[in-house]
Design a protein around this nucleic acid. Structure first.
Length: 310
RNA sequence: GGUAUCGUAGCUCAGUAGGUAGAGCAACGGACUGAAAAUCCGUGUGUCGCUGGUUCGAUUCCGGCCGAUACCA
């Protein structure tokens, strides 16, 4: 346990890492050890009902440690990083009244970053605007969008990935909505936080991680992922269901691919997702990498928290 | 046991009229400020089964061996 009365600042412990590495159980051990609660930073576990496919914490696990931001949204509810940032900061204010440390665990890098550093304020965008831009993209292709971007925000056009329609549409919708170039909204000033942050990234040798992914997907199927996905089939157009483990099964339901191929694709796409996560976390040099062993993580944290410099 | 075919990247296969080889998938690396489990960009990673022979040079041609498959016994 943390020695009482030590004058360290309130601390947010972040436990990140690729999917299937074992974040959930380590986080629960860590939170239990420090007698605190867990904030989930997982952009798919927010949604109620996506339990098997997102490997959401089990009833038993939830009964051990209180979790926030798991199953708190309906699949059709709109939610974004900025909302997450504000809600988490509010929640932390509350939690730090009674806890010296709080654990945030998850694999959504952008969401974690927003909590650590803040994200620039931008107005909400009219739904119609994105729809309009998307249909321009579909009808005329990427060149038209690029042309618009070069006219409306040459600065951003100079640094954005011009092959990525999502990025360009986002920049255009903000620019058109606000009348000011998207790039002028990007200040990346970095929100000052009045709590310490300790970042931990869990990882395993790649081969081992792939084995875990394969086993976990097989388990999900055994646990009834197919039925779970079928129950959300009618919502397949929603962003929340554009998710590994569901989209592949929707293709199976549509008769596009056989079941065994869908399962293989879930595994492949999960591996790729894990790789992207590792790439993201590697870029942030503040992460302390370690194996997914609760003991190792807790020992590291005890030392870090005991050090007044942290 | 005999005959035939095959053996090339992690997998499925292409190819070299003899000058050490390339596709798809997988994998790997990267980007990414309200779609982020999304979206996008990049990269061939190889004892051409083993071993002799012919040749300036063999993955390629010839012999032997090993392995796989099919058919005949």
């Amino acid at each position: 346990m943390v020695a009482g009365g030590l004058p360290f600042k309130n601390t947010l412990i972040i436990i990140a890492g690729p999917t299937a590495v074992g974040k959930t159980s380590v986080s629960i051990d860590v939170a239990a050890h420090f007698g605190t609660e867990i904030i989930s930073a997982d952009s798919r576990q927010f949604y109620r009902g996506l339990t098997i496919g997102t490997a959401a914490p089990s009833e038993l696990q939830l009964s051990k440690v209180k979790h926030h931001f798991t199953g708190n949204l309906q699949p059709n509810e709109y939610f974004n990083v900025s909302q997450f940032e504000h809600k988490v900061i509010d929640l932390l204010k509350d939690l730090f009244k009674t806890h010296r440390v709080v654990v945030m665990s998850g694999g959504s890098g952008l969401y974690i970053k927003a909590v650590c550093e803040g994200i620039d304020e931008m107005p909400d965008i009219d739904k119609g605007l994105r729809y309009e831009l998307t249909s321009i993209y579909q009808k005329e292709g990427l060149p038209s969008l690029r042309k618009m971007l070069f006219e409306l925000d040459p600065v951003y056009a100079g640094r954005v990935d011009l092959a990525n329609p999502t990025r360009i549409i986002r920049a255009l919708e903000v620019t058109m909505q606000t009348g000011k170039p998207y790039s002028s909204h990007l200040k990346s000033a970095g929100a000052g936080r009045d709590f310490n942050i300790i970042k931990i990234a869990l990882n395993l040798p790649r081969e081992e991680l792939h084995l875990r992914i394969s086993h976990r997907v097989d388990q999900m199927i055994e646990q009834g992922l197919i039925d779970e996905a079928r129950a959300f089939y009618h919502l397949r157009h929603l962003n929340s269901l554009k998710t590994v483990g569901y989209k592949e099964l929707f293709d199976y339901f549509d008769g596009k691919i056989p079941l065994d191929e869908a399962v293989e694709k879930i595994k492949t796409n999960t591996r790729r997702y894990a790789r992207r996560q590792i790439t993201w976390f590697k870029k942030d040099k503040e992460y302390n990498w370690m194996p997914p062993q609760s003991k190792t993580v807790i020992t590291f944290l005890e030392e870090s928290l005991g050090n007044p410099l942290t």
